[in-house]
Design a protein around this nucleic acid. Sequence first.
RNA 1: GGGCGGUUAGCUCAGCUGGUUAGAGCACCUGCUUUACACGCAGGGGGUCGCCGGUUCGAAUCCGGCACCGCCCACCA
Length: 849
Amino acid sequence: MPDLADQKRFDPAEAEPRIMASWVDSGLFHAPAQGSAVDNYSIAIPPPNITGALHMGHALNGSIQDVLIRYKRMSGIPTEWILGTDHAGIATQAKVEERLVEEGSSREAIGRDAFVERVWQWREQFGGTIIEQFGRLGASCDYERERFTLDDDYERAVRQVFCDLYEDGCIYRDQYLVNWDPGSQSAISDLEVEEREVTDTLFEIAYPLADGSGEIVVATVRPETMLGDSAVAVNPADQRYSELIGKRVKLPLTERELEIIADDYVKPDFGSGALKITPAHDPNDFEIGRRHGLEELTVIGEDGRMTELAGRFAGLKAAEAQQQVVAALREQGLLRGEQPYLHSVPFSHRSGERIEPLISLQWFMNMEQLAPPAIEAVNDGRVSIHPPSQAKRYTDWLEQIRPWCISRQLWWGHRLPVWYRGDETWVGMEEPQGTGWVREEDVLDTWFSSALWPFATLGWPDKTAELQAFYPTNVLSTARDILFLWVARMVMMGLRFTGDVPFSDVYVHPVIQAPDGRRMSKSLGTGIDPLTEIDEHGADAVRFGLLAMASTQDVRYSRERVEQGQALATKLFNASRFVLLNVSGEVALEPAVGEGSPIEDRWIVSRLQQVAEQTAQQIEQFEFSKAAFGLYDFVYGELCDWYLELVKGREFDAALSATACYVLRSTLAIAHPFIPFVTEELWASVPGAEGLLIGAPYPIAQPSLVDREAEQRIADLIGAVTAVRSWRSGANVKPGAQLGARIDSAALAADAPLVARLARLDLGAFGGELTDTIVVAGGAIEITAGDAIDVDAQQRERTQRRAALEQEIARAEGKLGNQSFVAKAPPELVAGEQQKLDRLREQLAALSG
RNA sequence: GGGCGGUUAGCUCAGCUGGUUAGAGCACCUGCUUUACACGCAGGGGGUCGCCGGUUCGAAUCCGGCACCGCCCACCA
């Protein structure tokens, strides 16, 4: 490391790569697979997509996990942060397809095998980017055990799970209405759908009764789907239509007749109170259709064009068909109204395209057997979710869980271990014997494989040493949005296949929003790149800033917090310089504190115990923001502002050197999980520090070093020095001026020289006319300032001060004059108020005297 | 439509098992080359704690209502 004497600031750009390399070389990122889960501490990283780039959410979550891992590692527990990436079916396939199109080719043109090969190549080239970016943060993941959700071993685990669940009867194939994403040309699950507000046109269409006795009007935003209608429904209690139930209508533009049926789903007060039923193209209609055994007529195909069943509209795109249908209806005089209509419509989360509900043959997973144990695990505390409000969301969702559509019409992913031959279906680990078997084309939803992450990464289904050592993992830290998508499914799969929960704590971290309160997103242009922030402020600063932002609620990104972190790093750097440039000779390893030690030494050592204790507790309780601020306050407010200042008058003898180095080492160690780089760098220079800080023990608070008396005395000293400084400022005294003074206070007697030095008082020069008296703990400080003060300023200050005191006294008197308060409030509170009043009166008297 | 969370200094946020004069960082004002640090030091100004009621000796904190903002869930054509 560079010479401390020449450098005033920590240089992250120079130091971070060097320090990261030394950590990697130490081997401490990699825990040997020994013992069982109770002997080790492990966290499975939420695997980033191979298409991903490090965003603020990763940076936050990485910082959180690294604090936990580093803290535990330093606490002497072998730690394993399981690292890896997700193959991310839709995203990755889309990315590679884009490239092919740029080359003038396409997925279809090169065929499945060649395409998959291309994706693997792409992954080779770019898939590791995000892992390198995690490294920039200083994340102490196990880079030697990097996993990928499509590795051979992982693939085997997926197949095993699929086959077992199939045998259980949980996995089945069915003709069902699914969310068809025209963008990815695949079905997607309900969780991958998002609602967006859209203005459509609501058309009212008259369906003539078959017997010619009248008509019934229905409303729809998708008139083209009427070609697939198989009934008209009304509410059974609706008087207007009770006569018509069971009658038939002529479906316009076709030769078909539909029955008028009764179903409770229909809201009489909405529109005309009559609803056209199109089971193949609307989720509600699908349900109603199944209830009434209606025909499911698919008139829009997977390609988004009208099918043969659409008659003369066949082959048209749905939007074109809509125009032509409306035109035809208008011509026939059956269009009764059209108006703009704002409503929410499903869109694909991935491709952003509007979902087309379609009936298709898909694979589903019934969750009814898996959900109850996962609810139970949270209810009985085997898994605890922080903050607890998230636990309710989790259980609520699981309690009304619905079948999960697990097949995707993609090429990149885990191909289902299913083979067909004629009417036969084979599900198994290997291809069936015999000829003529054709493998299922579809792959599994990416979340199916992600759900196995905590154990599939460790070698399951084999009983590996890794699985034995690191499963169940300890903590899963994640964003709220994948609580259902991922966390709940991991719990279900973990319980089903390992018999144990996958982790004991789930920490749901807040969302970092853009500074303007919007979501950080690439498409909105609101994203802030963590790597740019690291370049500018250093990884320590970014980590500190993010952790400080991560309290309990969603929060806007605040660059000031990052700058605060940078300031902390600089401050620690300089505080260390001060100590290191002063200590000399052999330095003892233990702090030299005892009865006769200087009070400031006893004090800082005592304070240190409490910061150590508090920080450890806050980390354990996932209170990262409190811990970060607590560290900052200690370093600034106690170590630098007071201890180092108090020490400046002393010679750095053996005792002071030992204590100062002890304090420094402890502070660096306590802060290391938060700001690992600068602390590691400094550690290398502190006498008594051995090896790398990353592997050093985390300080444990020693009750024997807590010193109440020292804390009280220094608190009094700080109060007195602050009071004098404030007085000096009010009296316009030159900062450098030494004022004659006498300290008349039993509480400060022993520490008078310290007070005098920090407050620039000259105890030997007391004499002449008394200028003022400043009330302090245990007494007062009398000042004889001569002509060093600005009398007018002092008078103004005294007047203001007196007014403030009088106001305070009035308040206290009012409170104590209130009989109810005296009678009902706790006695100690009343006594406290009385003491306060006495003190205030004393101050006022001193001011007036 | 239902649920959850938020609304505190100019800005970003703490505080909320009710009880000193409501805090921090940044910004702002005044002063300072004080034996590490101007990414610094010292001192200071700034808030009727979203609004209206209620409970209480006492409410930023508890209860009810309202208004905005955000998120999640949900099948209204």
